[in-house]
């Protein structure tokens, strides 16, 4: 599916960031089960952790019921074609999904859900243990609104996906050191304590290459984040607003 937006100007005239080849909104509305499954995969990869954490913390569910509800939510999303009702002019996809989660939890009938779950939808195993580990690191009793909490966890999930994809792509290109430098400086914050000479010695590169490699990795990371986000937003306006939220820029 090709929905490359002609009017997308992020990346400028040079089109440094060719944005998306696929949209979950389009895919979820497809008549083809494969397309719908692909849309679900993309959606699950970006949203399952925010949904799980939201159910665990906001709805105060134990981990087993939260796991069930998380899987039920995505199953219902496709089976009941909930995305068909999504109107990007009224809300962001993220907000719509959160409201759907609220509806599911409030109206849940566990037995019926368990029967329905797993029908035509093929779930990849979800790593709930890692989500539980992340929950332990979250500050207790924050003042976040449900939407703010969901937005932050969505950003965390999307950036996590982008980091995974960056590592794979750079390793495939033989640029593993580039990724390791980004990991050192931006994920682990270890680079601040080291001089460029020390970092260069550690990775067996020239000191002048440290900044160049890091800049390259960051550039690729930026491109991936925007591509991932483009895939799970409905239109240019939602993409712009979500990018602003993800990058920490708040609109009134």
């Amino acid at each position: 599916m090709q929905i490359m937006s002609d009017d997308t100007s992020i990346g400028g005239a040079q089109q440094q960031f060719p944005l998306t080849r696929f949209s979950v909104i389009e895919g979820s509305r497809s008549e083809h089960p494969i397309e719908r499954q692909r849309a679900l995969d993309v959606l699950i990869s970006a949203y399952w952790k925010p949904v799980y954490k939201y159910i665990r913390l906001h709805w105060n569910k134990d981990n087993e019921p939260a796991k069930d509800l998380t899987q039920d939510f995505f199953a219902r999303l496709i089976e009941k074609r909930l995305l068909d009702r999504f109107d990007p002019s009224k809300a962001r996809l993220r907000t719509y999904l959160r409201v759907c989660v609220d509806g599911l939890v409030m109206n849940t009938d566990k037995a019926a859900q368990r029967q329905k779950r797993g029908g035509e939808i093929d779930f990849s195993p979800l790593d709930f243990e890692s989500a539980e580990g992340e929950l332990l690191e979250l500050p207790l009793a924050g003042n976040d609104s449900p939407d703010d909490f969901f937005a932050r966890e969505f950003a965390r999930s999307l950036f996590g996906l982008a980091v995974d994809r960056l590592r794979k792509e750079l390793e495939d290109k033989g640029k593993a050191v580039h990724f390791q430098l980004l990991e050192l400086y931006d994920i682990e914050e270890g680079g601040k304590q080291l001089t460029y000479d020390e970092v260069a010695r550690r990775f067996g590169i020239k000191p002048t290459d440290v900044t160049n490699y890091l800049a390259y990795a960051r550039r690729e990371f930026r491109k991936i984040v925007l591509e991932e986000l483009k895939a799970i937003t409905a239109d240019e306006e939602e993409f712009r607003r979500e990018a602003q939220t993800l990058l920490g820029v708040r609109l009134a």
């Binding site: 952790k49 890692s130 580990g133 950003a155 996590g160 931006d186 914050e189 990371f221 990058l247």
Partner: peptide
């Protein structure tokens, strides 16, 4: 998926 704490997320943003 890579787990990111708040400070790592802020640095990446």
């Amino acid at each position: 998926m890579r787990s990111l704490n708040d400070s790592a997320l802020a640095r990446l943003q």
